[in-house]
Design a protein around this nucleic acid. Structure first.
Length: 273
DNA sequence: GCGACAG
DNA sequence: ATCTTGTCGC
Protein backbone atom coordinates (compact mmCIF):
# COMPACT_ATOMS: atom_id res chain seq x y z
CA UNK A 1 0.00 0.00 0.00
CA UNK A 2 1.12 3.51 -0.80
CA UNK A 3 -0.17 6.56 1.07
CA UNK A 4 0.08 10.13 -0.06
CA UNK A 5 -2.00 13.22 0.68
CA UNK A 6 -4.40 11.23 2.81
CA UNK A 7 -5.35 8.76 0.07
CA UNK A 8 -4.27 5.17 -0.12
CA UNK A 9 -3.37 3.36 -3.32
CA UNK A 10 -2.84 -0.37 -3.66
CA UNK A 11 0.23 -0.59 -5.87
CA UNK A 12 -0.47 -4.23 -6.67
CA UNK A 13 -3.51 -2.97 -8.57
CA UNK A 14 -2.69 -2.17 -12.21
CA UNK A 15 -2.38 1.54 -12.81
CA UNK A 16 -5.26 1.65 -15.31
CA UNK A 17 -7.69 0.37 -12.72
CA UNK A 18 -6.85 2.99 -10.12
CA UNK A 19 -9.13 5.95 -9.72
CA UNK A 20 -8.81 8.52 -6.95
CA UNK A 21 -6.78 6.01 -5.02
CA UNK A 22 -9.50 3.39 -5.28
CA UNK A 23 -9.06 0.29 -7.40
CA UNK A 24 -11.75 -0.30 -9.98
CA UNK A 25 -12.62 -3.62 -11.51
CA UNK A 26 -12.06 -4.20 -15.25
CA UNK A 27 -15.76 -3.79 -16.05
CA UNK A 28 -15.79 -0.37 -14.44
CA UNK A 29 -12.62 0.65 -16.22
CA UNK A 30 -14.43 0.26 -19.52
CA UNK A 31 -17.22 2.67 -18.67
CA UNK A 32 -15.08 5.57 -17.51
CA UNK A 33 -16.11 8.61 -19.55
CA UNK A 34 -13.58 9.32 -22.26
CA UNK A 35 -12.42 12.73 -23.36
CA UNK A 36 -14.51 14.16 -26.18
CA UNK A 37 -12.48 15.02 -29.25
CA UNK A 38 -14.03 17.28 -31.88
CA UNK A 39 -12.72 17.13 -35.41
CA UNK A 40 -13.65 20.64 -36.43
CA UNK A 41 -11.53 21.00 -39.55
CA UNK A 42 -9.42 19.02 -42.02
CA UNK A 43 -5.79 18.32 -41.24
CA UNK A 44 -4.57 17.51 -44.74
CA UNK A 45 -4.22 21.15 -45.70
CA UNK A 46 -1.55 23.28 -47.30
CA UNK A 47 0.60 25.63 -45.20
CA UNK A 48 -1.36 28.57 -46.61
CA UNK A 49 -4.66 26.99 -45.59
CA UNK A 50 -3.21 26.13 -42.19
CA UNK A 51 -2.39 29.77 -41.55
CA UNK A 52 -5.95 30.77 -42.41
CA UNK A 53 -7.34 28.10 -40.09
CA UNK A 54 -5.17 29.47 -37.28
CA UNK A 55 -6.47 33.00 -37.90
CA UNK A 56 -10.06 31.72 -37.85
CA UNK A 57 -9.66 29.66 -34.69
CA UNK A 58 -7.55 32.09 -32.64
CA UNK A 59 -10.62 33.94 -31.37
CA UNK A 60 -12.17 30.66 -30.15
CA UNK A 61 -9.37 29.91 -27.69
CA UNK A 62 -10.42 31.10 -24.24
CA UNK A 63 -8.16 32.89 -21.75
CA UNK A 64 -10.61 32.50 -18.88
CA UNK A 65 -9.68 30.11 -16.11
CA UNK A 66 -11.73 26.89 -16.10
CA UNK A 67 -9.35 24.71 -14.12
CA UNK A 68 -11.14 23.14 -11.13
CA UNK A 69 -9.98 24.29 -7.70
CA UNK A 70 -8.93 20.74 -6.92
CA UNK A 71 -8.11 18.86 -10.15
CA UNK A 72 -7.93 15.07 -10.08
CA UNK A 73 -5.73 14.57 -13.15
CA UNK A 74 -3.20 16.58 -15.12
CA UNK A 75 -1.92 15.42 -18.53
CA UNK A 76 1.36 16.00 -20.31
CA UNK A 77 1.47 15.61 -24.10
CA UNK A 78 4.51 15.24 -26.34
CA UNK A 79 5.48 13.89 -29.76
CA UNK A 80 8.82 12.52 -30.90
CA UNK A 81 9.60 12.14 -34.58
CA UNK A 82 12.23 9.72 -35.80
CA UNK A 83 14.89 11.70 -37.61
CA UNK A 84 14.85 9.47 -40.67
CA UNK A 85 11.26 9.15 -41.72
CA UNK A 86 7.69 10.26 -41.16
CA UNK A 87 7.05 7.88 -38.28
CA UNK A 88 6.31 9.53 -34.96
CA UNK A 89 5.30 8.58 -31.43
CA UNK A 90 2.72 10.61 -29.53
CA UNK A 91 2.54 10.15 -25.79
CA UNK A 92 0.09 11.35 -23.17
CA UNK A 93 0.90 10.77 -19.53
CA UNK A 94 -1.78 11.50 -16.96
CA UNK A 95 -0.65 12.11 -13.42
CA UNK A 96 -2.75 12.45 -10.30
CA UNK A 97 -3.05 15.74 -8.50
CA UNK A 98 -1.56 16.59 -6.05
CA UNK A 99 0.52 13.44 -5.83
CA UNK A 100 1.93 13.66 -9.40
CA UNK A 101 1.92 9.87 -9.62
CA UNK A 102 1.49 8.20 -13.00
CA UNK A 103 -2.20 7.37 -13.43
CA UNK A 104 -2.29 6.43 -17.12
CA UNK A 105 0.12 6.28 -20.06
CA UNK A 106 -1.04 6.25 -23.68
CA UNK A 107 1.38 5.89 -26.58
CA UNK A 108 0.34 6.00 -30.24
CA UNK A 109 2.57 5.48 -33.27
CA UNK A 110 1.78 6.89 -36.68
CA UNK A 111 2.93 8.92 -39.63
CA UNK A 112 3.22 12.69 -39.48
CA UNK A 113 2.11 14.15 -42.79
CA UNK A 114 2.73 17.84 -42.29
CA UNK A 115 6.32 19.17 -42.48
CA UNK A 116 7.92 21.02 -39.62
CA UNK A 117 7.29 24.70 -40.28
CA UNK A 118 7.87 27.15 -37.40
CA UNK A 119 4.44 28.53 -36.55
CA UNK A 120 2.56 25.52 -37.95
CA UNK A 121 3.70 22.87 -35.48
CA UNK A 122 0.15 21.98 -34.45
CA UNK A 123 -0.67 20.70 -37.93
CA UNK A 124 2.20 18.26 -37.56
CA UNK A 125 1.56 17.05 -34.03
CA UNK A 126 -2.10 17.52 -33.07
CA UNK A 127 -3.61 14.72 -35.22
CA UNK A 128 -1.46 12.05 -33.59
CA UNK A 129 -1.96 13.56 -30.14
CA UNK A 130 -5.74 13.46 -30.63
CA UNK A 131 -5.49 9.76 -31.49
CA UNK A 132 -3.77 9.21 -28.16
CA UNK A 133 -6.28 11.32 -26.20
CA UNK A 134 -9.19 9.44 -27.79
CA UNK A 135 -7.94 6.21 -26.25
CA UNK A 136 -7.47 7.48 -22.73
CA UNK A 137 -9.72 6.12 -20.03
CA UNK A 138 -9.14 9.10 -17.75
CA UNK A 139 -10.23 12.65 -18.52
CA UNK A 140 -7.61 15.24 -17.53
CA UNK A 141 -8.67 18.50 -15.87
CA UNK A 142 -5.64 20.28 -17.33
CA UNK A 143 -3.25 19.53 -20.21
CA UNK A 144 0.37 20.66 -20.40
CA UNK A 145 1.66 20.85 -23.95
CA UNK A 146 5.25 20.87 -25.17
CA UNK A 147 5.09 24.06 -27.24
CA UNK A 148 3.64 27.56 -27.34
CA UNK A 149 0.08 28.63 -26.65
CA UNK A 150 -0.72 32.26 -27.43
CA UNK A 151 2.98 33.13 -27.63
CA UNK A 152 2.68 32.56 -31.35
CA UNK A 153 2.70 34.86 -34.40
CA UNK A 154 -1.06 34.43 -34.82
CA UNK A 155 -1.71 33.79 -31.10
CA UNK A 156 -2.67 30.20 -31.87
CA UNK A 157 0.13 27.79 -31.01
CA UNK A 158 0.04 24.04 -30.43
CA UNK A 159 -1.46 24.35 -26.93
CA UNK A 160 -4.36 26.51 -28.19
CA UNK A 161 -5.09 24.10 -31.02
CA UNK A 162 -4.94 20.98 -28.84
CA UNK A 163 -6.88 22.58 -25.99
CA UNK A 164 -9.61 23.70 -28.35
CA UNK A 165 -9.89 20.28 -30.02
CA UNK A 166 -10.16 18.61 -26.62
CA UNK A 167 -12.21 21.42 -25.05
CA UNK A 168 -9.96 21.09 -21.99
CA UNK A 169 -7.86 23.70 -20.18
CA UNK A 170 -4.38 23.67 -21.76
CA UNK A 171 -1.06 25.36 -21.04
CA UNK A 172 1.73 25.93 -23.55
CA UNK A 173 5.08 25.21 -21.93
CA UNK A 174 7.98 25.55 -24.37
CA UNK A 175 11.71 25.18 -23.91
CA UNK A 176 12.50 28.11 -26.16
CA UNK A 177 10.81 31.19 -27.60
CA UNK A 178 9.04 31.31 -30.94
CA UNK A 179 8.23 35.01 -31.15
CA UNK A 180 8.21 38.10 -28.99
CA UNK A 181 10.89 39.42 -26.66
CA UNK A 182 11.57 38.28 -23.12
CA UNK A 183 12.08 40.83 -20.35
CA UNK A 184 14.95 40.36 -17.87
CA UNK A 185 14.22 37.61 -15.34
CA UNK A 186 15.50 36.86 -11.83
CA UNK A 187 17.73 33.86 -11.12
CA UNK A 188 15.60 32.35 -8.35
CA UNK A 189 13.09 29.56 -8.86
CA UNK A 190 9.63 31.07 -9.30
CA UNK A 191 10.93 34.21 -11.03
CA UNK A 192 8.99 35.25 -14.09
CA UNK A 193 9.12 37.86 -16.84
CA UNK A 194 6.71 38.85 -19.56
CA UNK A 195 7.07 37.76 -23.16
CA UNK A 196 5.91 40.78 -25.14
CA UNK A 197 5.17 41.33 -28.80
CA UNK A 198 4.67 44.99 -29.53
CA UNK A 199 2.63 46.27 -26.61
CA UNK A 200 0.96 42.91 -26.06
CA UNK A 201 1.85 40.42 -23.32
CA UNK A 202 1.65 37.01 -24.98
CA UNK A 203 3.19 34.80 -22.29
CA UNK A 204 5.88 34.64 -19.63
CA UNK A 205 9.28 33.14 -19.03
CA UNK A 206 9.22 31.09 -15.83
CA UNK A 207 12.31 30.01 -13.90
CA UNK A 208 11.26 26.63 -12.53
CA UNK A 209 14.59 26.01 -10.74
CA UNK A 210 17.41 28.19 -9.45
CA UNK A 211 19.81 29.36 -12.13
CA UNK A 212 18.49 27.14 -14.92
CA UNK A 213 17.12 28.26 -18.27
CA UNK A 214 13.48 29.29 -17.90
CA UNK A 215 10.54 27.64 -19.62
CA UNK A 216 8.19 29.75 -21.70
CA UNK A 217 4.58 29.59 -20.56
CA UNK A 218 1.54 30.85 -22.40
CA UNK A 219 -2.22 30.39 -22.39
CA UNK A 220 -3.47 27.47 -24.45
CA UNK A 221 -7.19 27.31 -23.72
CA UNK A 222 -9.58 27.84 -20.79
CA UNK A 223 -6.92 29.24 -18.47
CA UNK A 224 -5.41 32.65 -17.73
CA UNK A 225 -1.71 33.44 -17.66
CA UNK A 226 -1.32 33.77 -13.85
CA UNK A 227 -3.03 30.39 -13.40
CA UNK A 228 -0.92 28.86 -16.17
CA UNK A 229 2.24 30.02 -14.39
CA UNK A 230 0.98 28.77 -11.05
CA UNK A 231 0.06 25.32 -12.34
CA UNK A 232 3.29 24.97 -14.30
CA UNK A 233 5.27 25.75 -11.16
CA UNK A 234 3.18 23.40 -9.03
CA UNK A 235 3.78 20.55 -11.49
CA UNK A 236 7.57 20.82 -11.08
CA UNK A 237 9.33 18.32 -8.86
CA UNK A 238 13.05 17.80 -9.39
CA UNK A 239 13.37 18.85 -13.00
CA UNK A 240 13.28 22.12 -14.93
CA UNK A 241 10.49 20.53 -16.97
CA UNK A 242 7.09 20.06 -15.29
CA UNK A 243 6.51 16.43 -14.31
CA UNK A 244 3.68 15.60 -16.76
CA UNK A 245 5.73 16.89 -19.69
CA UNK A 246 8.93 15.28 -18.54
CA UNK A 247 7.14 11.93 -18.31
CA UNK A 248 5.38 12.41 -21.65
CA UNK A 249 8.75 13.12 -23.25
CA UNK A 250 10.13 9.89 -21.80
CA UNK A 251 7.08 7.95 -22.93
CA UNK A 252 7.33 9.33 -26.47
CA UNK A 253 10.98 8.31 -26.48
CA UNK A 254 10.20 4.78 -25.34
CA UNK A 255 11.78 5.16 -21.91
CA UNK A 256 8.52 4.40 -20.15
CA UNK A 257 5.53 2.61 -21.59
CA UNK A 258 1.89 1.89 -20.71
CA UNK A 259 2.08 -0.26 -17.61
CA UNK A 260 5.15 1.47 -16.21
CA UNK A 261 4.66 2.34 -12.59
CA UNK A 262 8.11 3.76 -11.99
CA UNK A 263 11.06 5.06 -13.91
CA UNK A 264 14.08 2.80 -13.57
CA UNK A 265 16.08 5.39 -11.63
CA UNK A 266 13.30 5.61 -9.06
CA UNK A 267 12.44 1.95 -8.64
CA UNK A 268 14.61 1.60 -5.57
CA UNK A 269 13.24 4.78 -4.01
CA UNK A 270 9.64 3.73 -4.60
CA UNK A 271 10.15 0.23 -3.27
CA UNK A 272 11.66 1.77 -0.14
CA UNK A 273 8.26 3.25 0.64
C1' DG B 1 16.58 42.41 -48.23
C1' DC B 2 18.09 39.93 -43.88
C1' DG B 3 17.76 37.28 -39.86
C1' DA B 4 14.82 34.44 -36.71
C1' DC B 5 12.28 30.49 -36.31
C1' DA B 6 8.01 25.91 -30.74
C1' DG B 7 9.24 20.60 -32.06
C1' DA C 1 13.07 16.84 -32.98
C1' DT C 2 17.48 13.47 -33.21
C1' DC C 3 22.73 11.32 -32.45
C1' DT C 4 24.11 9.83 -26.69
C1' DT C 5 27.23 7.85 -20.79
C1' DG C 6 29.12 9.35 -17.51
C1' DT C 7 30.41 13.08 -14.93
C1' DC C 8 31.19 17.55 -12.51
C1' DG C 9 28.84 20.85 -9.56
C1' DC C 10 25.15 23.54 -6.69
Amino acid sequence: MFTRQGTTTDLSCPYWLRYNGVCRNPAEANIIKRVQVSNFHAWNVSPTEAIQIQRDLAAMASSTNHVPLMPAYIAGADVSVSRAGPMATAAVVIVSWPGLEIAEVKVVRGKVEFPYVPGLLSFREVPLLLAAFRELALVPDLVLVDGQGRAHPRRFGLACHLGLALDRPAIGCAKSVLCGSVQPIGEEAGSRADITDGNETIGAALRTRNRVKPVYVSVGHKIDLPSALSWTMQCCRGSRIPEPLRLAHQAAGGLIWPGSLFRSSEVAANYAE
